[in-house]
Design a protein around this nucleic acid. Structure first.
Lengths: 200, 200
DNA sequence: AAATAAAAACCGACCGGTTGGTATGCTTTG
DNA sequence: CAAAGCATACCAACCGGTCGGTTTTTATTT
């Protein structure tokens, strides 16, 4: 096997081990030695691939963001009506629940660090703004084409993003507390149809 | 001044200092010495009042929960219709935004610790379940009295709680990103009326 | 009221263990 | 051989927590 391959595999194993450690014990709670042991490499290898523990964390965040970008790119099918497009967006959330199963506490680590580190903050906020813009666009289009009632698209998008974020957080804290995939589905249905009873 | 008064004031000052430190630097990021310095007391005083750093954290959580219970107690006026009652609940959220201004990162600390510590988890989850039950009750009543359309009250309550939690988190990360008080108001309006355009 | 005891409140030096990070050297590959 | 990739030993700093001692308040006795 070439040294490049071996090197990249080592790096990958460190990332994977760190993901597990951070998810289970948190960022401050896990030491570099612990990550190395789990990855089956030495401390020297660690600091050969990453300048610092913080840099590793950022790399982990970047990796996650890359995955997320892919998912967003797939979701580019503006053919359907706005309600259908919004329903389809829920599937993306379900992807989050599925993929990040057991590693959702990592989100808390990201968000916590984001509140203190400028670089991490920008990277962490990007998806929020991204999804906000995406949703606001869909809603705005839906209003002009008549499938949605007139309202402020930004506010509506904010509601949807907030709901999603809230569910991700709760599922991180209490995975068994509810079927969050189904809750997200039902939530979007509710949002579309409204709570108040209509008069005939 | 009596020693009791002095003692309680010292304890209070430690709590206040800790709140500031944890909000700014996080739980692991702040040392006991730092809290003591900010509070103007010695380490001896600290460990006279609190068994450990963790115990101080729990005390801080309890303090917050007490405030929250008061707010919930005030909100006990089931006289109005369900939509009105739900609108009134939003005011409670606004209270959170107002009171916890600048200390919202503390929520992230609470939630993060909750993912690892059983005791903190229970205390942290309690308000979630509390509000869920409260909202579900209002909605259920609204359905039976005809002011709300038939739906699953639990799902609807989950949506509202999730929206609130999501907004609190986002306001913690990006306080200047939006007028979250107004966003919460608009969100509830939207939830009540629905997004989809009605046919005449 | 003075003296004394006892308890509460507080101080700050100190310790043991941990941790992120480094310096140096060995192996393998090209 | 030169460089990349990796291992081992080690360190300086930090941090939660302890401990013996000191001051201040309260209770008790004389």
């Amino acid at each position: 096997m070439s040294t490049q391959q071996r090197s990249e595999e080592t790096r990958s194993r460190i990332l994977q081990a760190a993901l597990g450690c951070f998810s289970e014990r948190g960022y401050d709670g896990t030491g570099v030695a612990e990550i190395c042991q789990r990855a089956g490499v030495s401390k020297g290898a660690f600091y050969y691939h990453f300048a610092s523990k913080q840099a590793l964390f950022v790399a982990l965040l970047d990796q996650w963001l890359a995955v997320l970008d892919d998912q967003v790119a797939v979701q580019r099918a503006p053919s359907a009506t706005a309600p259908q497009a919004l329903q389809a967006m829920v599937a993306l959330l379900q992807q989050v629940f599925r993929d990040a199963s057991g590693r959702l506490p990592m989100f808390l680590e990201f968000w916590r660090q984001a509140a203190r580190d400028e670089t991490i903050w920008q990277a962490t906020m990007a998806p929020f703004q991204h999804y906000h813009a995406l949703l606001a666009g869909i809603i705005r289009q839906g209003i002009t084409e008549g499938s949605l009632r007139p309202c402020d698209p930004d506010n509506a998008a904010r509601v949807i993003v907030s709901m999603a974020v809230g569910m991700v957080l709760q599922s991180a804290l209490d995975p068994a507390g509810s079927d969050w995939q189904q809750a997200a589905q039902a939530g979007m249905d509710l949002l579309l149809d409204g709570l108040v009873r209509r008069e005939p």
